[in-house]
Design a protein around this nucleic acid. Structure first.
Lengths: 216, 216
DNA sequence: CGCCCGCAAATCCTATAGGATCTTTGATCG
DNA sequence: CGATCAAAGATCCTATAGGATTTGCGGGCG
């Protein structure tokens, strides 16, 4: 039996500010006033500063000494292409590793569960979709058995926050089927097929996201 | 003309603590007493806490709420293999990208300069060698043109701190020649050859490091 | 002899205050 | 009218203090 609040205020603030930025309640590129943020969260500036320091290492905010913190701006088209390229380097390798790792049935079942994606219905369908999509990719990276690769994949997700509000909602089923094709290859212990399926998925997802940049 | 101290105390402390850990002046796995560290650096605990928060995101320390920070322990053999695997995923891809990027002569000259490694002479030969080796790998990753890949490569270097004091000093020339072979391939715009040369270098470096684990 | 409980010391965590720096506003000069 | 400079305000940064929690140690019980 554990007390009501196991974690510290700093950790709470860290999660809260992360959510504020990911949900664009703090505009990308906007200055972050530490005192105002502290008042908004009903805490003192001290834990806010500590949370911001961690978020800077995560790439969600950037700091200018003696000036203040700024929410990281939206990705440019070029940065988006770099992100895709980076994922194309990391994630197919992770899928291949997972395929060769001899996963047990429990791990495979968990991966299959994460591969399913919620439909377009529901109150906050976009958030539910992105959360589940992240869970699948993170789970697969974790099952690669390489903790550093897993950490790198998780870290990249932070840079995707510009899409939280612009996710193309018309292709839910397509993404899910691509996920399942990857799981099938992993299940069959076919490393090459798993890597290929992941590459196809990432490339297709890239094309689905591209229209976002046309309208800017 | 700029004032004597352009950066803040927190940034100074961050660099100082990073050096303390990388140089093993703080034993890997040891608890970190915030107050004692603050006294040692002649500052208050506040900037120390902020620096530690950033170092946690960097992977150099880990935090347990209400208990304190701990210096990250030395890599186990398994973690070392994962690190090598991760570098084999990232760095050959970066070398290939750099080879296809059409670098100008200035960039190539900078890379060639970084490829040279200091000889075994000198006061702190090990530190000089590791610093120059890091500069080469970071420069090459930067020239890939992918900022996220560059950042990931730099981030991995932090986990190498266990070798700072155990670098095999007998193979300076070998490493340098492997570096130059990579540069040659990049210079020839041969992406496949650059990736192959990087893979060969990383694999060879892995084998050179392995004896360290035998003696533990 | 080993285990468990309770108290004291150490440490962490948060809030607050004051000094230092940057930004903005307004007035003066060219 | 535009540019420059100075002062006021806002904000950041660091130090300090006190409350909350954990850890270490000693005594008591089984």
């Amino acid at each position: 039996m554990q007390p009501a609040r196991r974690i510290t205020l700093t950790d709470d603030v860290y999660a809260a500010v992360q959510a504020l930025i990911m949900d664009h309640e703090v505009q990308p590129g906007a200055r972050i006033n530490i005192d105002a943020l502290a008042r908004r969260l009903a805490v003192s500036p001290t834990p806010v500063r500590e949370a911001l320091a961690r978020l800077e290492s995560d790439g969600l905010v950037s700091k200018t000494p003696l000036v203040g913190y700024t929410a990281t701006p939206l990705l440019t088209r070029a940065e988006f292409e770099e992100l895709v390229e980076m994922r194309l380097v990391l994630e197919p390798a992770g899928a291949a590793k997972a395929a060769g790792a001899g996963l047990d049935t429990g791990e495979l079942a968990g991966l299959r569960g994460a591969a399913d994606l919620p439909g377009p219905g529901g109150a906050d369908a976009v958030a539910a979709f992105t959360a589940q999509d992240a869970r699948f990719h993170h789970t697969l990276a974790e099952l690669s058995g390489n903790r550093m690769l897993h950490a790198a994949v998780v870290r990249l997700r932070a840079h995707l926050h510009l899409f939280r509000l612009h996710f193309p909602t018309a292709h839910y089923g397509v993404s899910a089927s691509e996920h399942h094709r990857i799981v099938d290859a992993v299940d069959a212990d076919d490393a090459d097929a798993a890597a290929d399926a992941m590459r196809a998925h990432l490339t297709a997802a890239r094309d689905r996201h591209l229209p976002f940049f046309e309208s800017r």
